[in-house]
């Protein structure tokens, strides 16, 4: 199964590299957005299986964008990403509606799938 994915990040260098990496590893990147409003619009249109959302979107906070995405009917799951470590944001990550967090350095399709499986496992029990 190839999951579809939306990437939200304001760093274009990272975006290109991440897209290459994920597609090579078997994910379909169906859209990219550089700010919150684009992200909300695209998530609505494309209904990706997962949205990778950068925590630091310039002046916007990824945590707020995650809340906005969650407000939609039938929201797609969100994974927060950042060059910071999870412990830098642990409190805020725990309080956010996102599935989980991945440090950018550890980004891989395997890691994304692991998070999604863990989350759906939770949901079923």
């Amino acid at each position: 199964m190839t999951e579809s994915c939306l990437i939200v990040d304001d760093s274009l260098g990272f975006m290109d590299a991440a897209r290459g990496l994920l597609e090579r590893q078997g994910l379909r990147v169906v859209g990219v957005a550089v700010n919150g409003s684009d992200a909300v619009r695209l998530a609505h249109q494309l209904h990706p299986d997962v949205t990778l959302l950068d925590i630091n979107l310039g002046d916007e906070s990824g945590f707020e964008v995650a809340e906005q995405l969650q407000r939609h009917a039938n929201p797609s799951p969100v994974i927060l990403i950042s060059t910071y470590a999870e412990e830098d944001y642990s409190d805020l990550i725990a309080a956010s509606p996102a599935l989980g967090f991945l440090s950018k350095a550890n980004l891989s399709v395997a890691a994304i799938r692991a998070l999604m499986q863990r989350a759906s496992g939770y949901r079923e029990t």
């Binding site: 760093s11 260098g13 990272f14 290109d16 590299a17 991440a18 290459g20 990496l21 090579r24 630091n56 060059t83 910071y84 950018k104 350095a105 980004l107």
Partner: peptide, 21 residues
């Protein structure tokens, strides 16, 4: 530091991985 060096470094590691593969 975050927007520049760190993002660049992450991108670089991805590209290295790609080269490796």
């Amino acid at each position: 530091l975050h927007d520049g060096a760190q993002q660049q470094l992450v991108a670089l590691t991805f590209e290295l991985q790609a080269t490796q593969e």
